[in-house]
Design a protein around this nucleic acid. Sequence first.
DNA 1: CGCGCTAGACTGAGCGCTCAGTCAAGCAAT
DNA 2: ATTGCTTGACTGAGCGCTCAGTCTAGCGCG
Lengths: 188, 188
Amino acid sequence: MSDTRTQIIEASIELFAESGFWNTPTSKIVQNAEISTGTLFNYFKSKNGLIDEVFLQLQQELTAAIAEGYPETGTVKERVEHIWFRYITWGVRFPVRYRLLQQLKMSDFVSSDARERSWYEWSFASTLIPEAIETGLYRDVSVKFVVQLAFAQRDAATDYAIASQLADTALTKHITRSFEIYWAGITS
Amino acid sequence: MSDTRTQIIEASIELFAESGFWNTPTSKIVQNAEISTGTLFNYFKSKNGLIDEVFLQLQQELTAAIAEGYPETGTVKERVEHIWFRYITWGVRFPVRYRLLQQLKMSDFVSSDARERSWYEWSFASTLIPEAIETGLYRDVSVKFVVQLAFAQRDAATDYAIASQLADTALTKHITRSFEIYWAGITS
DNA sequence: CGCGCTAGACTGAGCGCTCAGTCAAGCAAT
DNA sequence: ATTGCTTGACTGAGCGCTCAGTCTAGCGCG
């Protein structure tokens, strides 16, 4: 990882988050990264290629934060709660990065290739969903919907925490409470 | 509402939903609407002005669908459930419009002026939130978070219903169930 | 009824400009 | 001398938007 490459990615994160992808010309990126036009295209084959790399970078940072201390042998609830906690904490600590990642996930700027590659990072949690089904502690609802709800409620909790600038004990309380609400909803 | 204006808006909805705003040049819109370049700018002062109008149009259609049969005098729960039901039903019936509206809400393409104007449409529900606070049936959670959670869970339920192509009784059951989950989570 | 006229919706070539991406020249390090 | 990174003026495709001009429906008048 050369220094120049990092500079470009950091400048891109900042500008993309600020103005969006289509409103951020490469000219502004090179200006912000203090390099020249040509150098950008030495490191990335196109602007879209750069967007892919920014996405992978952010996804990797988030996944690393979650994977750290992951209770491989814990109960399903413990593991889901761990992800919940780490995810929201990361979002609050890096709100610019979090919002950009959210936007990238939703948009179709990111190539399907990059999306696929980002899934490998989640291998540590690959047994979670099958196990959740087996334990059968959920209400009579499809697993797909339970997962989708988890994502939606977790993201809503993160947005709220960022907007309200929660920290320390207030943040911890909020995370625990939001998880309780989720768990109370889906378990019978 | 002239026919040409409607043509332009319908063409825009289709193309924006398909390729996004920045990937839809005005040349494609006029092609799709079977008019010429200049006509578009007779009806809308700019491309951004057009986006605003598309947003207002969709928001209005959705609000009209929800306002119809709204139980003004019902309990808080009844009224929230009514909105829940109508919203998801509208999304399932018009998935292209629903997805585009979601994107527009999230993005910053829509001017703050247009956003403000769209709030007037919701006046029929203006007493809902104050009443919800008074009744105090919620858990010890901030009202803002309860509202944000409602939006998030309702949208997740809609996405799931669209993706799974639910209809008729299966759809009704899903809507009721998803509302139950929300209600179980936030009430103590 | 028929003619002349007008209003204004519509047209589309083309303007000015921005953009992503190129490439020949320069430079520093070996 | 050679290699490989860096530079930034340059390119041409594509964009939003304009405007001088066309066309037609419909009105007033003899």
